[in-house]
Structure formats: C-alpha cells, structure tokens
C-alpha cells in the first residue's frame, strides 16, 4: 500500500494562505493528509522566450522525477507563472491522467477579491488532482471536474464532485489502496 499523503509543492514564493487553503480543500475532497514539499523553485528550464510562458509538461516531468524518492501518493505543484502546452495559447494547469503529478498556475486566476481567488484556486487544485486519479472532464456544470474555459466558468462551477465522478473516484481509490 502506498503512502496516503498528497504533496503540495509551491514553486517560488506563493502566498501561504493560498497554500493552506489548497491543502484543506484537497484533504476534504480526497480524504488524504497533505504535506508541503518544496521540490524546486527554479523553472527557467521550462521558459519559452518567444511566448514568455512556461511549458507545463516539462515542469511536470521534472516534478515527477524530483519526488520519485518521496513516499507520497500524488503531488500538485503551484506556480504563479503563466503556463502553456505547445498547441494551446495557455493552460490553467496540467495533470498526468492517472499519473502522479499535476501543476496549477495561479497566473490567470488572481482577478477579484480575496475570497473569490481562494475559492477559484482551491477548485482548480482539486480539479487537476482529480485528473491524476484518472477522472476526466465532467459534463455536469456544477461538478468541480467540469471543464473551465475561463475564470467565469471556474466561478460558476461547484467545489464538489458530482455523483458520477464520486463513483469513478471511489473505484480508482479502491484500485490504488487495496
């Protein structure tokens, strides 16, 4: 049985309140404890000078490598940099579907007042981690695994998983834990 801890890995200087809120949301959604783990701070290796953005897939690969020796179930990196994948202009985050690592960018989620920001980033953190538990985008508008095309969509959706995603998550947890 693997260690039932999810690591939250801030990249650079991330607001402590945001990290704590994310930890709380993850514990509540997945029922696992969390730990803060500083994997690395420098992501210039993933920087693209033409786009002035950071390649999320490259960061994920390094993240997975960095935590390979750590006894954690999953890891979510948090950055304030703007992320991209080559075919898309930007992404809020990226996750290895059914894998170990995911990353969330706060860059485009920081509009509005403090409670709105906290609510938004915690939803997206739970969302990205959901992908690592093999959950795909959900069609239920209220489900946290719903696909968000912009911050308005993130604000509109709920912070919890719908019935389908809960069933699929439980199936996945049974596979992982037993």
């Amino acid at each position: 049985m693997q260690n039932s801890i999810i690591a939250v890995s801030p990249i650079g200087d991330i607001d402590q309140n945001i990290i704590e809120s994310i930890r709380e949301a993850i514990s509540s959604a997945y029922g696992f404890g969390t730990v803060v783990l500083n994997a690395f701070d420098d992501i210039t290796f993933a920087h693209n000078h033409t786009r002035e953005q950071y390649h999320s897939t490259a960061i994920l690969e390094k993240l997975e490598e960095s935590i390979a020796a750590e006894n954690v179930l999953k890891v979510i990196a948090i950055t304030d940099k703007d992320l991209f994948i080559p075919i898309l202009t930007y992404v809020f985050g990226e996750a290895q579907l059914g894998g170990k690592a995911c990353i969330l960018s706060l860059h485009r989620l920081m509009e509005g007042d403090r409670p709105a920001i906290i609510c938004r980033v915690t939803k997206e953190a739970v969302h990205e981690l959901g992908h690592t538990f093999s959950l795909r985008h959900c069609k239920e508008k209220q489900c946290v695994m719903g696909y968000s095309r912009g911050t308005q969509d993130v604000d509109r959706k709920g912070s919890k998983m719908c019935r389908y995603c809960t069933v699929l998550l439980n199936d996945e947890l049974k596979k992982i834990l037993f």
Binding site: I85, L88, E94, A95, H137
Partner: peptide, 15 residues
C-alpha cells in the same frame, strides 16, 4: 511529437 502529445493529453482529459 510535441504537438501530438500536447494535444492528445489535453483531449484525453476532456474524455
């Protein structure tokens, strides 16, 4: 390869 992989990853997450 990079275009294939990045697009595939994105669409797979979409189900």
């Amino acid at each position: 390869l990079i275009m294939r992989e990045s697009l595939a990853g994105w669409l797979e997450r979409d189900g």
